[in-house]
Nucleic acid binder design. Structure first.
Lengths: 326, 326
DNA sequence: ATGAAAGCGCTAACAA
DNA sequence: TTGTTAGCGCTTTCAT
């Protein structure tokens, strides 16, 4: 690898002068135009590539940030990654994407590894509302922002969809279509996301003077949701509207509905959190609560950037969801 | 940040000794057990985190590799990223994921940036069969492997699905179901992926003594494919089997078919390259050619690791696809 | 069994 | 207008 030193030797200059030129500070140091030219040409000829690694080491700043996602298979996280990466790149940062799998132990190891890598900051999703790793991380002083949900009791910035509003959109849609018997299939409350979505459901129902026709709390995956919905549909008084609190559970619900062979949407309607790109191709129509996933990624990075600069960051940045009725 | 020096000073030892202990070389250097203990305890107490950045700088090796993907929105690339990240992590590397968007200019900038970051190697997908950026990269000597497709005329390792076999699976499936009028909707031949998939289609058709009922070459996106399929279905002698060469085109085809209101699968059957996780929920059934995306990512990293160690790497690593009939 | 010193590539403070 | 020097945190070679 060609270094500044090599260029300096070739031109019988000092490494400093080469640095001045190559970092564009020749104005300030009043390097002669001819020298500037010679340095530039030599750099070009030798194929010089500055070492961001050396610079990072010197500056004690790596210009890299990490995004720890739970599951890249989920379009939500993919979208967040895309948004964050775009913004990071625009600001001269690289994004290191890591998987936590929603597993506390993996998260701990990942965070540790990233700290050793000296990332300048992290964007993470707490595994639970009592995430110890993040509490520790905060003590160490590494800037980070939370995404999609928060841990409890700590004043750490979070960028997320307005889950409460999202639930309201879902309920209002069903109510508007004339449903009164509405059930929810939701994930575990240890994850704040689901806590709020459930709360939003309850509030919106109450607002319309309705009682939940069912509250199924399951692991936030397709199969448990399918099971739960099958159960709901077997009841003598079965709900006519079902709200599923994330994409996997929506898939599960749709499978249950398909298997029940109901007349859709006359006998049953489904609304799910998380948009589905190909919902228009589904046999069973489904209305979705769309999240601006790229905006979440973008805003998370922006918030992190502020935090890294020591600027104040709002405790919560809420991104508005939208209903995609079908 | 706590450094070895801080530990050394606290214990009135030399930094060297601390290093010997913390890197686990105390056996070799015969550091006394009591010192080992003291160092370890102090490191723990002070919250020492070794700086992978400093080490990378010193070793001129960053233990990071880059994966440049075209579009993280595509489950293919997501799966590859997951596979590559898993393997990289297992080997002590971090994966930097970047977007090229299939754009030559972006690819150039991305590669340049990653070189400056001193990644130890890259996994990339050539933008076209004549990708100049990769040709240049090769001259510079940075180890890299190609994924999904190759540039022409250069002896650079590539890990990909056996596209030829995939096309054969698709055609054979349609033939087995009794179709004789089979058309293909394919992406541009500048991308080797599509070149081979088309070739595979032609060969498989010929093997069964069939002539293509249509060869539509379009941009590899949903809308152009939808257009193309609409055209195919308007023909007096319309095909009864359609093979779409990637996921987006499959979506387009399915929309065209849905709009044409044909009796499926009696009047028409579709087979698409790339699996669709929720195909079972589709109104129009579709058979898919499944790729082992995680294996591709894994194998790509393994190949890269070999290349980085200077070991020989096979020119091509082909991963077998599988048919998911529906 | 432990330590001193050099050096990885770069930038900034300070000379000249 | 250009150069000298020091130092970022770590590992290794060579002493002691």
């Amino acid at each position: 690898m060609v270094r500044m030193k090599d260029i300096a030797e070739k031109l019988a200059l000092s490494q400093t002068t080469v640095s001045h030129v190559l970092t564009g500070k020749h104005e300030h140091y009043r390097i002669s135009p001819s020298t500037v030219e010679r340095v530039r040409r030599a750099a070009e000829e030798l194929g010089y590539r500055s070492s961001a690694l050396a610079r990072a080491f010197r500056d004690r700043k790596s210009y890299s940030v990490a995004l720890a996602v739970e599951d890249l298979t989920n379009p939500f996280w993919t979208g967040v990654a895309i948004g964050a990466e775009k913004e990071a790149e625009a600001q001269g940062y690289v994004l290191i994407v890591s998987n936590t799998n929603g597993d506390a132990e993996r998260e701990r190891r990942t965070v540790q590894m990233l700290q050793e890598r000296r990332v300048d900051g992290m964007i993470v999703s707490p595994v639970t509302v009592a995430d110890q790793t993040l509490l520790d991380l905060r003590k160490e002083g590494l800037p980070f922002v939370q995404i999609d949900r928060s841990i409890k009791g700590a004043d750490i910035p979070c960028v997320r969809t307005d889950h409460l509003a999202g639930s309201a959109l879902a309920v209002e849609h069903l109510v508007r279509r004339g449903h009164k018997e509405i059930a929810i299939v939701c994930g575990p409350p240890e994850i704040q996301t689901f806590q709020i979505r459930l709360e939003g459901f309850r509030k919106a129902m109450a607002k319309h003077g309705l009682k939940p026709a069912g509250v199924e709390v399951v692991r936030a995956l397709a199969e448990p949701a399918q099971e739960a919905v099958r159960g709901l549909l077997e009841r003598r008084a079965r709900p006519t509207g079902i709200y599923t609190a994330n994409i996997w559970m929506t898939f599960g619900a749709l499978r249950a509905v398909r298997d029940a062979k109901l007349a859709i949407p006359r006998e049953l309607e489904i609304v799910g959190f998380d948009d589905i790109a190909v919902a228009d191709l589904f046999a069973v129509p489904v209305t979705t609560v769309w999240q601006d996933v790229e905006a979440i990624g973008r805003e998370a990075f922006k918030a992190l950037l502020k935090a890294m600069k020591g600027q104040p960051v709002p405790r919560e940045t809420l991104i508005a969801p939208r209903l995609k009725a079908r």
